[in-house]
Amino acid sequence: MTFWSIHIATRLVRLALVLAAVAVLSFALAKSSPVDPVNAYLGADIARAGPEQRALIAARWGLDQPVPAQFFHWLGNMLVGELGYSMTYNAPVIDVIATRFRTSLPLMGLAWLFSGIVGFALGILAGSRPDSWVDRGIRLYAYVLASAPTFWIAILLLTVFSVGLGWTPVCCAGPIGVVPEEVTWLQSLHHLILPLAALSVLGVAQIALHTRAKMVEVMQSDFALYARAQGASRREIAIRHGARNAAIPALTVLFASLGELFGGSILAEQVFAYPGLGRATVEAGIRGDVPLLLALALFFSFFVFTGNAIADIVYRVVDPRMDGKLLR
């Protein structure tokens, strides 16, 4: 279908433009920040290196060249897949991102799924009986959670369930002293619960409030009224008509919320010392690991863009009124 191929081609061009813009911006930010790659490299040895040695390292890395030249050198490397070397993890950036992503994927994927399912269910429940006590309860919950910072919720969960009750581990993706390869999936799950809860809770509020708004609208629609005139119960209307009509905006919000998921994961993983992408981002920032930081910025941009693109497409595919067509 030419319609789709044109659409996908436009998206790809846009993606390239977005990534180029992010590359320029993040490179400029890294350059103008006080982070000095040479200092970051030397670490504790900083006192033992003289100015001549530092100049030698800088020259070896091309840091003595003008900034645009440095940028294009870096960009050229990026384009051929050479992401650089992470000094923090003492491994190629590409390997760091790959392993960290594998750890983060179950956390973010499940959080995304749960917040979608739970949020949608709560939204349907609340919106089918606006201003009932169920609705008030769900709304209060959603507003409180939507305005509570993730790291604060994470600390709260940690205090209650790990420190107070001792049900869940205090940190990490596996028991301390066990190499990642030997962690059983049950142990992984045990370590996943709290970060997952902290991260899901945030998304739930978003989806629930959006779904509720659409539900309230549907329950007042002509077709809901007509269903009542046919003898349908409120419950039947909520399930048959409400859920059907609220699903499209909920899906759109769910895909568009991928960006917030990454933002949330940075905070949640930091609090739980969960060795995923989020924590790697914080480490890279603190230690001045420029190659890793830049690569992560591009990686996140790619994901957020993809999420938004899917959000944009999904309702056009799902909604029969669009006949699978894309408006542009």
Binding site: S221, D222, F223, L225, Y226, A227, R240, H241, R244, N245, I248, D319, P320, R321
Partner: peptide, 8 residues
């Protein structure tokens, strides 16, 4: 026609 569910 608005009394018919547009998505069913």
């Amino acid at each position: 026609i608005s009394h018919l569910d547009p998505l069913a």
